[in-house]
Amino acid sequence: MSELKTLYKEGLWGNNPALVQLLGLCPLLAVTSTITNALGLGLATLLVLVGSNITVSIVRNWVPKDIRIPVFVMIIAGFVTIVQLLMNAYTFGLYQSLGIFIPLIVTNCAIIGRAEAYASKNPVHLSAFDGLMMGLGFMLVLVVLGAMRELIGQGTLFDGADLLLGPWASVLRIEVFSFDSQFLLAILPPGAFLGLGLLIAAKNVIDAQIKSKQVTPPEAEKGPRARVTSLT
């Protein structure tokens, strides 16, 4: 149980693939121009991550150490192909707008990283949960970044949600405010870098605050301590 809790905390916050490990930045920066794109790619990555973690964990005892990386890549590529074909069939608009970044999930270091660091050493159910949590953590960051960029860039939220969720979802589009000229920088890649930097900074601030709250009580109990050795 505590292992599950650790995985849950690590995946969503403490070891978040996007904010702490800084893995998979290429799709993260490239496709988060709207929430819809971010959510689409986040879901695709989540599916691939769970699938590859489960499979890698199942075959972990039969894969020789020397050739494990190619094997993992093959497994991941298989799942990416499945997801790509599914998106091509059911969410064609999104498939077109994400373009090359769907096949590029294969090279997402977050996925091979989890396969190598966790799934290849742990049983199936834990690996599946790890994949789910890491995928969710990645997807959350994608969505938050997508929301920031979409809001600042064009003043809307969920623009083009019908591409992902079907025609009914076009009602989800919220026009928060409208301006004559788009704030292009937020939509262009530099905006993604700036946005991600701000998100990481925000996480560090929150971590520092949590830490400062936790540390203060035990320090108050300590008595004065005389230095007996010199610093040098």
Partner: peptide, 10 residues
């Protein structure tokens, strides 16, 4: 540069 890239018209 931010302004030039973001608002080329203005």
């Amino acid at each position: 540069v931010l302004l030039l890239v973001s608002f080329p018209v203005q």
